[in-house]
Nucleic acid binder design. Structure first.
Length: 462
RNA sequence: GGCGAGUUGGCGGAGUGGUUACGCAGCGGAUUGCAAAUCCGUGUACAGGAGUUCGAUUCUCCUACUCGCCUCCA
């Protein structure tokens, strides 16, 4: 059996992965807050953990792996959108409008992540469906002395858990010294965090022992992981911005509730765009859908992501996008002629080495150059780049270029006689300027349009 | 201020205690009307300093710089 090595944030070491039960490998990944379209950064953990999911399924068998990724649908930004819609005259109660917004966003998320070739998790629970489990867990924490009620809130007492800060390598004292914590009068310790908070009448709320309110952010993952994966499971993942406080708090809650919780913690590094953090203020903020709508294929996005190791910052650049498309087109053209596939141990070993996806891409280059198309198919398959066969955009041109090909072909034939290539060069130059690849050989003229090419641009050329 | 990650050739980006990837770009050649595509050839880089070692880009320490988190942003 392949040995899988994973870098565990908890121990800050790469460790051999040993599942609690090889028959029942379990992974929980923190999913999105569904308030709007997923931005490009949201896609990184999806792709990273999708590769891990595929690897686990390969090694332990598809029926022996359970992958849970939640939807956070309790959030002020969702409420905000619903309130705006109601103010604008939308029909339905606020609750309905909130539910509509969450559903709309979840559907978008699924569409966008499907386009990136990510498999759907086995469970995609919504926080609102697990409120009672959260309340039960909070009650249990209070009963055990790890939490307390105060002014309609329920708060976790960090002083009751001496390991608090172990995951992120901080101490409570250091954090308080940082002086950036919200100080609320009802908190026993400034670092205590909210398990439950009161809801005003115009916001969604559920009845609880502490009054009408809604859960804090962290408790949902603890409750859902426990409900769907059990008290102890194998892997918990997410972006590294979640290490603190989200995951730290999850560990505190779950551990104090008596759960073993997760053995291995995996965190992906952040995404950058052209060397800078993606942010609305810098004007480099865009969604996955934006890219797809611009004609960037999901496979290309996926390829770019896989070319950088998940624990390093990944820079999304236009140059990488272009190179990825070119390379993928070449590989897809190569494997289009065969249905046979074989997955080599070398490829599995690379993915199993803390998800060395870049190493697999290097191996793909080698397989491609060696003409090992079976092996290339197998490797692309494990990376999730071949789930639906060769994508349409890579099968020659998506757009009809036969007119242009015929025109260029005729001009070339004439030029062969007259030795005057001026017209041929004019057409060729114009096509190249549009991004169309031009290949002329004894066999004839072949044109390849880039992904997202608009054929109306040809009008000026012919 | 605290915590964490990182610094590899023109660019991207792996990896390794000694034999020094890979891709792109570049350069030379084959091929081509010219190109493209393809094929062949071509590049001893590992932030700085100290230490461990027969030997370090790879291990340890220090310094510099970059980045992230400490603000329910993956």
């Amino acid at each position: 059996m392949t040995t899988i090595g994973l870098y565990n944030t908890k121990t800050r070491r790469k460790e051999d992965f040993v599942p609690i039960s090889p028959q029942d490998v379990r992974m929980y990944v923190c999913g999105p807050t569904v308030y709007d379209r997923a931005h490009l950064g949201n896609a990184r953990p999806v792709i990273v953990f999708d590769v891990l999911y595929r690897l686990l399924r390969h090694v332990y068998g598809a029926d022996h792996v359970t992958y849970v990724r939640n939807f956070t649908d309790v959030d002020d930004r969702i409420n905000e959108t619903a309130q705006k819609r109601k103010a604008a005259g939308a029909e339905g109660s606020l609750e309905e409008l909130i539910a509509d917004r969450a559903k709309e966003t979840i559907d978008w998320y699924h569409q966008d992540m499907d386009a990136l070739g990510a498999l759907r998790p086995d469970h995609a629970p919504r926080a609102t469906a697990f409120i009672s489990q959260m309340i039960a867990m909070i009650e249990d924490l209070i009963a055990k002395g790890h939490a307390y009620a105060a002014e309609g809130h329920a708060l976790f007492a960090v002083d009751s858990y001496k390991q608090y800060g172990a995951l992120s390598g901080r101490s409570v004292d250091d954090m308080i010294a940082g002086a950036r914590v919200e100080v609320a009068p009802y908190k026993r310790n400034p670092m205590d965090f909210v398990l439950w908070k009161p809801s005003p009448d115009d916001l969604p709320g559920w009845d609880s022992p502490w009054g009408r309110g809604r859960p804090g952010w962290h408790i949902e993952c603890s409750a859902m992981a426990h409900e769907l994966l059990g008290a102890a499971f194998d892997i918990h993942g997410g972006g590294n911005d979640l290490t603190f406080p989200h995951h730290e708090n999850e560990i505190a809650q779950s551990t104090c509730a008596g759960h073993g919780f997760a053995n291995v913690w995996l965190h992906n590094e952040m995404l950058q765009v052209e060397g800078k953090k993606m942010s609305k203020s810098l004007g480099n903020f865009f969604t996955v859908r934006d890219l797809l709508d611009q004609g960037v294929p999901g496979e290309v996005i996926r390829f770019v992501f896989l070319s950088t190791h998940y624990r390093k910052p990944m820079d999304w650049t236009e140059k990488k996008r272009q190179e990825a498309e070119k390379t993928l087109r070449k590989w897809y053209e190569q494997v289009a002629g065969t249905e046979e596939s074989s997955l080599s141990d070398a490829v599995v070993t690379l993915v199993g080495d803390d998800l060395n996806t870049h190493g697999v891409l290097t191996e793909c280059h080698r397989l491609s150059a060696a003409g090992d198309l079976k092996g290339l198919r197998g490797a692309l398959g494990l990376l999730g780049l071949l789930d639906h066969g060769v994508p349409l955009w890579a099968k020659g041109s998506q757009v009809d270029l036969s007119m242009a090909e015929a025109a260029l072909s005729a001009a070339r034939a004439a030029a062969m006689q007259t030795k005057d290539f001026a017209e041929v060069d004019r057409i060729k130059t114009a096509l190249l300027a549009l991004g169309v690849e031009v290949q002329m050989s004894k066999e004839g003229v072949k044109l390849t349009a880039p992904a997202g090419f608009d054929p109306s641009e040809l009008e000026g050329v012919l």
